[in-house]
Design a protein around this nucleic acid. Sequence first.
DNA 1: ATGAAAGCGCTAACAG
DNA 2: CTGTTAGCGCTTTCAT
Lengths: 340, 340
Amino acid sequence: MGVTADDVARIAGVSRATVSYVVNDGPRPVSKETAERVREVIRQTGYQPNALARNLRLQRSKTIGLIVPDTHNPYFPEVARGIESIAFERGYSVMLCHSASDLDREIQYVNMFHAQRVPGVIWIPGTNIFEPYHKLKGYGIQTVVIDRLVPHEAVPAVVADNVEGGNLATQHLIDLGHRRIGYISRPVDLSHSSGRFEGYQTTLKKNGIPFDDSLVVKGGFILEDGRRAVQELLAIENPPTAIFAYNDIMAIGGLRALHEAGLHVPDDFSLVGFDDIAQSAFTCPALTTVHLPKFEMGQNGAKLLIALIEKQKPPEEVLTPLSVRLIVRESSGAVSPQHS
Amino acid sequence: MGVTADDVARIAGVSRATVSYVVNDGPRPVSKETAERVREVIRQTGYQPNALARNLRLQRSKTIGLIVPDTHNPYFPEVARGIESIAFERGYSVMLCHSASDLDREIQYVNMFHAQRVPGVIWIPGTNIFEPYHKLKGYGIQTVVIDRLVPHEAVPAVVADNVEGGNLATQHLIDLGHRRIGYISRPVDLSHSSGRFEGYQTTLKKNGIPFDDSLVVKGGFILEDGRRAVQELLAIENPPTAIFAYNDIMAIGGLRALHEAGLHVPDDFSLVGFDDIAQSAFTCPALTTVHLPKFEMGQNGAKLLIALIEKQKPPEEVLTPLSVRLIVRESSGAVSPQHS
DNA sequence: ATGAAAGCGCTAACAG
DNA sequence: CTGTTAGCGCTTTCAT
C-alpha cells in the first residue's frame, strides 16, 4: 500500500507538484483535463497522501490536543465528544489525555504536544496552577481553556455561568420555602465551584438570609463523600431543610444518607446539585439539577480554538469567556425517603 | 523555540547522529562524556525532538487510533480512559474518534488512520459489519477489537464473558425464586447482547424453565425505551415477576415504569442489567447489576495492541479473546415501588 | 499551466 | 566511538 505522490505523478504523466495542487485544490490552478487525469489515477491506485510527510513539511499537524482531568466523572467525556464532533467536521483529529488532576502530568502532555507540533490545545485544568498554559503559549500553541477561569489573565475560554447557576439553585430552594440551606463544597475550589458558592452566598443575602458558615461542609469527589457531607449537615444543632451541593455526585451520594434509617428529615427536604454526571436528573428523579450543556461547551471550545488556529484572529476578539446557557431542570422537588 | 538536533550538535561540537543516539539511547553507543555534554546542551537549549520529522523518517507515529461508537453511554469513556492510561505509560498517545455507530464514519476514520500511519487501532464496532477491520488489515495496521466478537474470523480481541454474565444474572433471579423472567433485548444484537441473551436462554433451560418468547421485548438505547419495555412486559397476560435487561440503561428506565401509578407488581419484583452506565449500582441502589470492568478492558486492549505493534508476535498467540472477569454486585434484591 | 528541485528534521546506513 | 550523508513524502518557490 505504499503509493506516493511521485507514483501518481509518473502514472498520470505529470509532475509531483501538479499532484499536490490537485489533492489540495491549490494553491496553483490546474487545468481541468490534467486534474481529472490525476484524480483518475488517484482513484485507480488508492493513493492516500502521507500525513506524516505533510506535517513535517508544514511544521504542524492537524491535531488538537485535549487535556481533561482524569476522573470517573462523565462530565469530561461529554465535553470531549463535543470537541471531537467539531474537530472532525473541520478536518482535525483529537488527542485525548487524562491528567489525573496532576500538574506534572499536565506538563508532560504539554511537552508531548509541543513535540507533535499540534497547532492548538484545549485544556480543562485540574489544579489552580496555570503553568501549563504559559508553557503552551511559550511554545506558540493556541490554547483554549474550558470550564475554568484563569485569574488575572485574559485567556480564550469557554465557561459556564457558574455564579448564575448558583443563584438559580439557591433561589429555587428559597422559592420552595427554605431558609436554612446547607452547602456542600468542593474540597479544593476551582473557579467553577467557587462561582457556585458565590452564587449561593449572593442569593442568600439578596433574600435577607444571613450566611451561616456552620451550614457549609466540605464534600469530595465520590458518592460516599456526599453521603458523609449530608450526614454531617443533618447532625448539626439546627440542621438545614435543604442542601445545595457543588455537584450532583455529592447530591446523589447525599440521597443515600437520606435513605438511611435513623435520619429524620422533613418531607419537603430538597437537594440540588450541578449535573456533572450526565443525565443524573434522569437516573435520580428525586434530584433537582442545574443543567450544564457539556456537549455544547465542547463544541464551542473547538470552534473557538479552530478559529484561533486558522484565522489567527486578534486575541481581543475572543478573550471574553463565552457564557453557556444554564437550565434548571423540571424539578421533582421533595425527596421521599423510603424509610419514613 | 525552533532548536533542532543540528543546533544541539553544533553547540555540543558533535555530529547530528550523536545527538540522535543520545536522545534515543541507541542504536549505537556514545561515550559517557560526550553523552553528558550533549545532554547538558539539550537542557540549556530546551531542545525537544520534532516528532513530525521522526514520524516521517520512521514511517509511523506513536499514536493509537481509537474508534468508539458515539453514544451518551459512559461505558466507552471508561474504556478509553483505560486505554489511554496504558498508552501513556508506553509512550503512545491516543486519537479519539466517535463513529456514531455509523459504518461510513468508521471507514473515514480508518482512512485517516492510514494517512497518519498509526501503527495500531483499537476498535469498538458500532455495527455488525466488519469491513473497517479488513481495511485496517489491508493497510497493515494492527487492530484490536474490544467488546465484540468478529464471527468466523480469528481477531485479536478483548471481550467480557457476556454469556457467563447472562448466566449469572438469570441464575440470580431464579435463585430469588423467580420462574417467569422477562428479557429486554437490544434493538439490533451485537455479540455482547446476543451473548447475554444466550446466557439467559441457557440458564432457563438448565433450571427446567421453558423459554417463552412472549417474555422477550425489544428495548432501545435510552431510559425511555426501558420504561416502555417494562410497561409492555407487565401488560401481557401472564406477566413476569422479574426482568433481565441487556443493559442498565434499560433497567434504570424500567424502574421508572415500576414507580408509575396504576402498575401493580409483586413486592419482590426484581430487575437486573449489565452496567453499561458507570456506577449505576451506586446511583440506583434498587438495581442489581452485572459489573463490567471497563477500565481494565481498556487497559488489556491497549496492552495487547502495543504487544502486537512492538513485538510483532505471531498472531496465533493472541487470537484467543481475553476473558475479562465478571462480577455480580452485591444485590439489594427487591425493588419497592413508591406507590405500593 | 506545469516541471524541477529545495528542504522540513530526523534516523540509520555507510565510512572511517 | 564518531562524522557524513541519503532519504522519508510532501509543499512550494523558482523557473519556464
